[in-house]
Amino acid sequence: MKECLIDVQNAVINMDDEIILDLVKKCLDEGLTPIGIIEEGLSKGLDGVGERFDAGDYFLAELIMAGEVVTVATDYLQTKMAPGESGKKGKVLIATVKGDIHEIGKNILGMILKASGYEVVDLGADVSAETILETMKDQDIQLVGLSVLLTTMVTSIKDVVEALTEAGIREKTRIAIGGACCSERLAEEMKVDAFGESAVAAVTIFDGFREALAAS
């Protein structure tokens, strides 16, 4: 692997927003493609951040900072891509469920997903099942991330699942949940496809969803 890509990875891991653009430009000068830089440099750097988060060495603050560093770099690389190239993994709809207006977790999820190459459609907080369904239909979205912090609002997740089922699109979609009161058990009870304990875990989950949907 070229040294400049390793430098990009390290800049992401070290959350160094001052040098990231110079490093990305250096990679381009050395003949690497924008998508190659995203996949081998930025994404691998984010993987490193995720490993540190899982190990308890990094926390939310570092995740957000690293996400910002990657976003700056990917926004720049988008301008250097050939027509038709996007480097995007597809759309993910994210929302805090009806009745809950806590947005921090959802915002962090959005930032990390965006940094990981997803186009994020953020509907905000206190979003009804109807609005989620409508947006998914209008924008042809299959992937959904629902955030809920309040123990009192978890059943709003079920409302979304039921709305998608009634509309006949549940089987073609994948839903992940996350937030302070969520768990594997809750995911099972709410009949969603996954529980993400962190924004880092969410990236792996949505990557898996994409593969599963592509294979189905």
Partner: peptide, 15 residues
């Protein structure tokens, strides 16, 4: 802090 500052608080921790 979270109510008043939102997710920016987490960036403030470092920045």
């Amino acid at each position: 802090v979270q109510m008043l500052r939102g997710s920016q608080a987490y960036l403030d921790v470092i920045q």
